[in-house]
């Protein structure tokens, strides 16, 4: 024991880079994921600085300049069915589209992970009750559930966010539950239990670090789904109300112009496609960056 007392002076400890740090280093080397991240960052910057970037007022209508083609002077991306500048509307549309597309996922990530991890760690009857309740929601196709909830709650930004969050909670909870159930049986959790630690500390310090990565990857892949669902709700008139600029809603109002000026009419759809595929590629990059055995 004296040797231990003598060894007390300061030691220089070599530290390995942590898991998240090395994950992000690997991600930074992934060109596709980084390009996707760049596109997403650009979209967010456009949304934030829309008043500075947009060349015209997105709601200024002009009945004599309707449905101008792409490349018309003063209308670089043409004009819509009410003669509003498409470029400005697309830039402003990024604001609402990103809010309703992205926000539900982190909220559902927190709530769904909490439900799933608790159910998975507790196991037994508690798990059965929670997970069967979750399954009731999971049984509906997500589009149907989102439409039904939005329809019941009424249109509007908050209601759209709530209904999309409710759609994603069961999906995330199921992933969280299955990952936690696997981790719970591992020896290191048994060893932590054998140390007499309370369950909540074991969950926070031993389980969470090992289940969060796969849940996180799944959640990022849901952002693209969320974007499409949100636009779908707006398209159906259940989301944002006109005249606010939102890509899904713009797609709906321009639908009548699909024969007259197809290139302009599909522009909001192109934006939705670019955004959702960027989130998907970033999620894929994240998955492979995390997948390294460590």
């Amino acid at each position: 024991m004296t040797a231990i007392a003598l060894a007390a002076p300061k030691r220089i400890i070599l530290r390995s880079p942590g898991y998240w740090k090395s994950t992000f280093q690997r991600l930074a080397r992934d060109k596709v994921a980084m390009t996707a991240l760049g596109v997403i960052a650009a979209l967010f910057l456009c949304a934030i600085f829309a008043p500075l970037i947009a060349p015209a007022d997105p709601n200024a209508a002009s009945m004599i300049r309707r449905l101008r083609p792409i490349g018309t002077p003063n209308y670089p991306l043409g004009s819509d069915e009410l003669g509003r500048d498409m470029l400005s509307r697309l830039i402003y549309g990024a604001r609402l589209s990103l809010i309703i597309g992205v926000t539900p996922v982190p909220i559902a990530f927190v709530i769904g992970s909490a439900i799933g991890i608790l159910a998975g760690y507790a196991g037994g009857l508690f798990n059965t009750i929670i997970m069967r309740t979750v399954d009731v929601f999971y049984a509906f196709p997500s589009v149907l559930l989102a439409v039904a909830l939005s329809g019941a709650l009424g249109s509007g930004l908050t209601n759209t966010l709530v209904s999309l969050t409710v759609v994603f909670i069961p999906q995330i909870a199921r992933i969280a539950e299955s990952v936690t159930t696997q981790v719970r049986q591992l020896d290191y959790v048994e060893a932590a239990r054998a140390s007499g630690a309370p369950a909540y500390r074991i969950i926070l310090e031993q389980v969470l670090g090992n289940v969060l990565a796969p849940i996180f990857v799944f959640a990022t892949s849901l952002i693209s789904v969320s974007m499409i669902l949100a636009s779908g709700l707006s398209f159906l008139g259940l989301g944002v109300r006109p005249p606010d600029a939102e890509w899904g809603l713009m797609l709906n109002t321009l639908r009548t112009a699909i024969y007259a000026n197809p290139l302009v009419a599909i522009l909001p759809g192109v934006m939705i496609f670019i955004t959702s595929i960027s989130f998907n590629l970033l999620s894929d990059g994240l998955r492979s960056a995390m997948d390294v055995k460590s």
């Binding site: 530290r15 898991y19 591992l186 290191y188 670090g209 090992n210």
Partner: peptide
């Protein structure tokens, strides 16, 4: 399997 892959050695030993 009895060591948590996300914890450093000192964290694992000092947990209890």
């Amino acid at each position: 399997a009895s060591l948590n892959p996300r914890l450093t050695i000192e964290q694992a030993i000092s947990f209890g």
